[in-house]
Design a protein around this nucleic acid. Structure first.
Lengths: 86, 86, 86, 86
DNA sequence: CAAGAATTATGAACCC
DNA sequence: GGGTTCATAATTCTTG
């Protein structure tokens, strides 16, 4: 099986390509982990400042969702809720 | 807006129909929840009998798949691992 | 390794016990699948009755959540939101 | 309630402190989202290079675990499968 | 069949 | 530190 690239086949697999893909994923996941730790630190700070962490999380969630809920289906949702007396 | 059925429109919505649909869904979801709880109990039983729950889950998953498919994925995994020298 | 029960060890594993556990899980999962299919049918019915399925799902979700949101932390959440001008 | 800082209380809440906390979290979460998108892109690249994405994920997961742990779980899986005659 | 939503499973964090 | 809840990851299903 002749190859134009330098990528060595291991059992028909483009090993270098696979390795590159996996290492890039791993690098990005490390960065992601690091950010997650930073976020955790801030929640810890919030806690020691006397805030209720669970509620802070809820606020963050709400602020993420609210713009999304200003959408076309709001009207229908309203309609259905009214039909059900909710 | 004349209706043949007795279903009262609320803002153009066939309220009774909608209500029926939603209540049937809710009933079925309750049953589903109950089954999910039963399953959880069995996993707990497995754990206290000394089985590794994670591996038991894996077995259940494997048995759901076609043997040929299982074989295929295991072969690929092997191949990739070898390509990476794992 | 003497055993009081008739359970045959296979490599130190209580095979019958494991089999029983797995088969019970599989049976319950089948029932669960069947319920899921029933639910799917109702959504299909809803669709052909002219309802917007996505919104119906949202209603079902809301009705599930709303009782849960009548909880102790509502007050705090309100407070935080007001502090943020939300 | 005397305050040393300039932070204005809103209903007894240190509003500026809370706002700072929440905005920092939001900034970090945006970065996190961006990394998650990058990772998704790489999996897409893997797919179009002909790799089986599900198996690639499995490889990434395996490399995160300790080799001893991987070995242990593989052994158990084997054991359970044999006990079930799979 | 690709994109997105929804369900399920795994992993982390918190409380007791 | 163990168990339970909460959060994230991953798979599956649905829809355009």
């Amino acid at each position: 099986m002749a190859e134009q690239s330098d990528d060595k086949d291991v059992g028909g697999i483009a090993a270098d390509r696979l390795r590159s893909i996996i290492e890039r994923i791993e690098r990005l996941e490390e960065e992601r982990k690091s950010l997650a730790d930073d976020i955790k630190d801030i929640y810890a700070e919030a806690k020691s400042a006397g805030f209720d962490v669970k509620v802070v999380r809820q606020v963050v969630r709400l602020r993420k969702q609210e713009p999304a809920e200003v959408e076309e289906q709001e009207t229908l949702l309203d309609l259905y809720r009214r039909a059900l007396g909710m």
